[in-house]
Design a protein around this nucleic acid. Structure first.
Length: 645
RNA sequence: GCUGACGUAGCUCAAUUGGCAGAGCGGCUGAUUUGUAAUCAGCAGGUUGCGGGUUCGACUCCCGCCGUCAGCUCCA
């Protein structure tokens, strides 16, 4: 390599030598004139940079082009779109304060400090102004400035000044300018505003400055942008689609659950069909827990405050607990429980335990009540009355790894049965914690060993553990790609201490057991809410509240149809008869809209032959005629096998 | 909890500048007896979320509360 030159590896693996300070754009001109037209930015190793930025080091260089399949390209586009948004807002409201405006997973936002929050009409106005700015095709110009100059430039922008203070001494301070708008910004950006082709502002909402609820609330505008118009339209269609599979809407349409204003927010009423799903999930899990060596326990819904003082909930968790219930003539107030662990601790402590007894696994499907902030409630996915499939495992420290391994196996089995993909988060010791470093080392090692023994991919959330122990969370994705925490497996050093739990070891000495909190579904509310969206309401046979609906073609076939539905019921299926005085078409349509897996039509021909004309939801073949016995056998087999189709 | 928007029949939505609260679906009744995604007709259904206020008159304007939605914060 010639002295002083840089060596760049291009995406076709060719290597070029260039003078330091050459811009990506100049390089593109040298290499391939066509690239200049298409390139919007460059990526040198892991750093995305403007086309106009001088290249000062060797590395692998890739040109980013206008592609909605390229996350990096979208990142640049959306970042620039955020700037166009801010440019528009500033041009309409010159005294609007500006916060941050980053690209995010599906778009971008920008935070503004304005006297009056944005109205939907404002958004339209802003969008129109943005279109003008894009049409104006102003170049994004980057400039590096000194700290003093930066302070001067942003003298009227307190949020930018605050950010400026955080940029370490010695780091470059860059500003970007597009037309009249100047922003303190790291970049990178598109060459000009004209390339922000297809964008849409979605909504405005308040957002705390720096995400801190004690600080100023700014007004955030969300939007998205794509290079291709069709992709923007597709995205907006997908938002519509998401709405159609929203569990709150399906819950109403399929009559699964409701919330009642009289009763209170976040308190779910399970209607018969929703309750059936919960029942099926319970039965499935409980059968599995029996096989896996659990004991079932039942504990009260309320307890004296003494208990929660002992457990520490009153001190650490009181803001989420419902207020104390005073009792005439009782010295001590009662509380409704937010968790079940203290009760299970009491059962453990109720007698002496031997090392031979361990592990002990206490399972309880229990209702807990938590006074979650009103603004966070969301259908079934975040509620105040929650039904956990809770369990507490008491074991010796040498048993932790095997227990965790077993729990991961159980979770994998359960999630697999529903066809849910999940992600593992391993949260390690936080700053504020109790317990010795040795205990934490041992606990974290045991968790990690169990995860790795199962060869599971996981993300580490360093410092994300609870103050009483590290944890593993399972997050499942619904069909729209939103992430929800379902399972949680948490080690606890604190409660065994607080309740002075012990077992007698082989050495005839008193030892402290380790406790594991765990929930596989998490809560039935959230899990089933997630399932509704995952299946878009079309539950597989084994979960469908109604599996078979039998439709007589006309009134004189009622008896024959009833025989079919009774045969199905006798075989353990959930079958019903729809002999309403409506046309067959009407009843078929209703059955389809209710997403019932099997509609079995009984006409004269079927009645005479002992068959049914079966319409299977989603099947290619619209209907198949088969003997009643065969039909029942088939659905029973599908039910037993928990087939997902 | 915070910011904003919204709240009309079981559901989805109308109702001009403040002037008699309506439609479709659903429900009920009757007719029709139906062969694979909506048969026809009639009827019932509302203190317009709740409570105040302004006004001759409030679904409409103002205030408070409750709830819902979006986001922030927080979390199963």
């Amino acid at each position: 390599m010639s002295a002083g030159k840089l060596k760049l590896v291009l995406q076709d693996s060719s290597e070029v030598e260039v003078e330091p300070g050459i811009s990506a754009r100049e390089l593109a001109e040298q290499v391939n004139g066509e690239l200049v037209e298409r390139a919007i930015a460059a990526k040198l190793d892991d750093e995305i940079m403007d086309l106009a930025r001088p290249i000062e080091r060797s590395g692998v260089l890739r040109f980013l082009t206008e592609s909605d399949d390229d996350e990096d390209a979208l990142y640049v586009l959306r970042h620039s779109a955020a700037h166009v948004l801010a440019t528009a807002v500033r041009s309409i409201w010159p005294d609007a304060g500006i916060g941050f405006g980053p690209p995010i997973a599906e778009g971008f936002y920008y935070d503004f400090d304005v006297k009056h929050p944005f109205t939907p009409e404002d958004l339209e106005k802003i969008e129109a102004r943005m279109a003008e700015i894009v049409a104006g095709d102003e170049p994004f110009e980057r400039r590096e400035v000194g700290r003093a100059e930066a302070k001067e430039l942003f003298a009227d922008d307190p949020y930018k000044l605050e950010r400026l203070e955080e940029i370490p001494e010695g780091d470059a301070i860059s500003v970007y300018c597009d037309g009249s708008f100047l922003d303190l910004c790291r970049g990178p950006h598109l060459p000009s505003t004209g390339q922000v082709k297809h964008f849409k502002l979605l909504h405005a909402a308040g957002a705390y400055w720096r995400g801190d609820e004690r600080r100023q609330m700014l007004q955030r505008i969300y939007g998205t942008a794509f290079f291709e118009k069709s992709h923007l339209e597709e995205y907006l269609r997908r938002l519509e689609e998401a709405r159609r599979r929203d569990h709150r809407i399906l819950g109403k349409e399929l009559d699964l659950f409701s919330l009642q204003e009289d009763v209170g927010p976040g308190l779910i009423h399970w209607h018969p069909k929703g309750a059936m799903i919960q029942f099926l999930l319970r039965r499935f899990l409980e059968d599995e827990l029996l096989k896996r060596g659990y004991d079932f326990v039942y504990t009260p819904h309320i307890a004296r405050e003494t208990l929660f003082r002992k457990s520490g909930h009153l001190q650490a968790y009181s803001e989420v607990m419902f207020p104390a219930m005073g009792m005439e003539g009782e010295k001590e107030d009662y509380r409704v429980k937010p968790m079940n662990c203290p009760f299970h601790m009491e059962i453990y402590a109720s007698r002496q335990r031997s090392y031979r007894d361990l592990p002990l696994r206490y399972a309880e499907i229990a209702s807990d009540y938590r006074n979650e902030k009103s603004g966070t409630l969301h259908g079934m996915l975040r509620v105040r009355g929650l039904t956990m499939d809770d369990a507490h495992i008491f074991c010796r420290s040498d048993q932790i790894e095997d227990e965790i391994y077993e729990l991961l196996d159980l979770a994998a089995y359960i999630y697999g049965t529903f066809g849910l993909e999940y992600r593992l988060d391993f949260s390690t010791r936080p700053q504020k914690r109790i317990g010795s470093d040795e205990a934490w080392d041992q606990a974290e090692d045991a968790l990690r060993a169990a995860i790795e023994r199962r060869e599971l991919a996981y993300a580490v959330d360093a410092g994300g553990g609870a103050f009483y122990g590290p944890k593993i969370d399972l997050k499942f994705l619904d069909a729209i790609g939103r992430e929800w925490q379902g399972s949680t497996i948490q080690l606890d050093f604190v409660l065994p201490e607080r309740f002075d739990l012990a077992y007698v070891g082989a050495d005839n000495q008193r030892h402290r057991p380790v406790m594991i909190h765990r929930a596989i579904y998490g809560t039935f509310e959230r899990f089933i809410g997630g399932l509704i969206e995952h299946f878009a309401g079309a539950f597989p046979v084994w979960l469908a509240p109604v599996q078979v609906r039998v439709l007589p073609v006309s009134e004189e076939l009622d008896a024959a149809a009833r025989n079919v539905s009774e045969a199905a019921r006798a075989a353990g299926l959930r079958a019903e008869l729809d002999n309403r005085a409506e046309t067959l078409s009407y009843r078929i349509r209703d059955g389809e809209l209710q997403k019932i897996p099997y509609l079995a039509v009984v006409g004269k021909r079927e009645a005479e032959a002992g068959t049914v004309a079966v319409r299977h939801r989603g099947a290619e073949q619209k209907q198949v005629v088969m003997p009643v016995s065969e039909f029942v056998k088939q659905v029973v087999a599908e039910d037993r096998s928990r087939t997902l189709a």
